[in-house]
Design a protein around this nucleic acid. Structure first.
Length: 588
RNA sequence: GCGAUCGUAGUCUAAUGGAUAAAACGAUGGCCUCCGACGCCGUUGUUGCAGGUUCGAGUCCUGUCGGUCGCACCA
């Protein structure tokens, strides 16, 4: 199904043409003045110069050509040359009927589906997820689902941090505690244990201890670096133990990501591509891209048009060790080989802006990726506390993600128990579901690139622009549909009718823009648009609901028409929040 | 120092270069014998500053002030 604005633009373009003007002037957009009209076209003003004519004259001529239009029931030319439009009700109804019958409510499949790899993890082994990881998970996960919904193939990669000094610190920490383990016995040639010898809590204890000690104890730090080196070289014992650290960490990460309804297709880490590094380095040397500067191996990524300093992209440190850039570039090589993607999307903290510019330029310059591969980076802002500074626990520590989730669930549970009758078990379950909506909607309704304030009270409120409000509206519709069925009505057989009231028409108009909205959200990688859409839809529904007695309506055809409208509204809302990453309960 | 980025009601967030800058929270006044009042209808109040481009600027350009962030061997 074509997008509504395209249909309107097409009709308007024909009118411009019929009046003797360029059809391209007939671009129709949403009205900025809902009090005056529903849609508007400013083409007459744009064309005034070209045709040396007063805009209002052009507008009048075009309006005259639209007098019998079924698409527009009202076309007004207004000074200085606006064309104010109202859409035909019959036409609008037909659009909704088409929406009902088509998959994904008329969202057209892409001409050529893309293959997309999206990297939105950034978690490290042996370190718990913290607030900072909330955004990459929520934004990345939602962008993945949006693109899938639209019809692309999307592969999510956790891209675990399991390579650098942190791994060495964990390994040396384990060695301090358990020097007798076979992993550290170089003469050992047998099998290593299959079962983990440690828990995630132990790792989370060891890492900070080890990290702290390495800062004050140079000898210890040397050991950690040695362990890092041995691990990176793939020395048997260290490699095996490192893999165990990975496994234990991944198991725990999955638990927390699950609570956020987020998963990954690939649990690759930086260590996954270790064997590619020498090859990649050689490739860059052979190609004449990489050279030694101050002892390190670098690739220049400056461009003539740069107005700022652009440091070279470092491939290897002066001691020959690899670093973040190395693994990221090798990962690009790996992804190109394994998946041949059309697009690779990175979702990280916005502070990494310059870094990713360097990496992307380097990948392009060295032809690690072809010109047809789109490299995209989305930088998100920080999650702040009420003081406007990065979110901390009460005592100033780093907030663990699972505690943040738990706090939200507890608050939600408290609110749910407060005002309604619900068994404890059901309240717990519902609270989890609603808390997820509160958390995700609270994050996604902001533009990704901006910082936002995490306000538990506001996010978990049932009032205003919040996740719980969206769910409440859906639950309300479900409740009416259930009652309709109890009365013996069949919602599936209900037929849409032409909208009567303004509120009903407004609801229908909002619905009819679903496909355009979803397509826009996908190309712009902007979940925020879905939030705005679904919130507006909820408002439109509530206004309509308020003035319309549905179940007591005596005219069965009319009643069925409303039921059909409600069903469609519910289904569109449910699909929308599903791609955002949460779902509505039946009761709340 | 160089560079990036942001600056919108009391607060928090919107706004493909288009008309009178839009919601929410807060404050405040109404609306339940009626499908979920966790709702609906009102009132209140905003583009840091100075220029410029444009028929038209929150949006583009220049300067300026303020915040945040980044500037090769961390990730």
């Amino acid at each position: 199904m074509k997008k509504l604005l395209d249909l309107l633009t097409q009709e308007m373009g024909q009118a411009f043409e019929a009046a003797g003007y360029d059809a391209a002037l007939g671009k129709v957009g949403l009205s900025n003045r809902p009090d005056l009209c529903e849609f508007q076209c400013n083409g007459a003003m744009a064309g005034a110069k070209q045709y040396h004519k007063a805009p209002i004259m052009i507008a009048n001529e075009v309006a005259a050509k639209l007098s019998g239009s079924k698409v527009f029931e009202e076309v007004q030319a207004v000074a200085p040359g606006f064309l104010n439009l109202k859409i035909g009700k019959e036409f609008l109804k037909d659009i909704l009927v088409t929406m009902e019958s088509e998959p994904k409510f008329g969202l057209e499949a892409p001409e050529k589906p893309k293959k997309i790899v999206i990297d939105y993890g950034g978690a490290n082994v042996a370190k718990p997820l913290h607030v900072g990881h909330l955004r990459s998970a929520v934004i990345g996960g939602s962008i993945k689902r949006i693109n899938r919904y639209v019809g692309h193939e999307v592969i999510g990669d956790a891209h675990l941090g399991d390579w650098g000094l942190q791994m060495g610190l964990v390994l040396v920490g384990l060695k301090e505690r358990y020097p007798d383990w076979v992993y550290f016995d170089e003469s050992y040639t047998g099998e290593y244990p299959k079962e983990a010898l440690f828990t995630i809590s132990e790792l989370e204890e060891i890492y900070p201890e080890s990290s702290k000690r390495s800062k004050v104890d140079p000898e210890y730090k040397a050991k950690a670096m040695e362990a890092t080196y041995k691990f990176q070289q793939g020395e048997r014992g260290y490699w095996a133990l490192g893999q165990m650290v990975r496994e234990v960490s991944i198991k725990d990460l999955k638990r927390v990501y699950n609570a956020l309804n987020t998963g990954f297709e690939l649990w690759n880490g930086e260590s996954t591509i270790k064997d590619l590094i020498p090859e990649m380095v050689q490739y860059m040397k052979d190609g004449g891209y990489a050279y030694i500067s101050e002892g390190a191996l670098v690739v220049d990524v400056k461009e003539e048009t740069d107005t700022k300093e652009m440091p070279p992209c470092m491939i290897l440190k002066s001691d020959g060790a690899s670093l973040y850039n190395t693994t990221d570039l090798a990962t690009i090589m790996d992804r190109v080989r394994n998946f041949d993607p059309d697009q690779i999307i990175y979702v990280t903290d916005k502070r990494q802006d310059l870094y990713f510019q360097q990496v992307f330029r380097c990948a392009r310059k060295t032809k690690l990726v072809g010109p047809d591969v789109d490299l995209k980076w989305i930088g998100f802002g920080t999650v702040n506390g009420n003081d406007g500074k990065p979110f901390k626990t009460r005592d100033g520590g780093v907030m663990r993600l699972e505690n943040l989730i738990k706090d939200t669930q507890d608050e939600m549970y408290r609110k749910i128990r407060e005002g309604r009758e619900m068994s404890e078990e059901e309240a717990r379950k519902t609270a989890e579901q609603v808390a997820l909506a509160a958390l995700m909607y609270g994050d996604l309704s902001n533009q990704a690139s901006k910082d936002y304030i995490f306000d538990l009270d506001r996010f978990t409120s049932f009032e205003g622009d919040t996740g719980p409000y969206i769910l409440y509206t859906i639950v309300r519709i479900k409740s009416i549909l259930t009652k309709y069925a109890e009365q013996g009505g069949n919602a599936d057989a209900a037929k849409l009718q032409v909208a009567q009231s303004d509120a009903e028409k407004a609801l229908a108009m909002q619905l009819s823009q679903f496909n355009a909205m979803m397509e826009g959200a996908a190309t712009e990688l902007a979940p925020q648009r879905i939030c705005a859409f679904v919130y507006e839809l909820a408002n439109d529904f509530n206004r309509f609901y308020h003035e319309t007695k549905i179940l007591t309506e005596e005219d069965e055809v009319k009643k069925a028409g409303w039921i059909a409208l409600l069903s469609l509204t519910k289904n569109v809302m449910e699909d929308s929040i599903k791609v955002l990453g949460f779902e509505a309960p039946d009761k709340m």
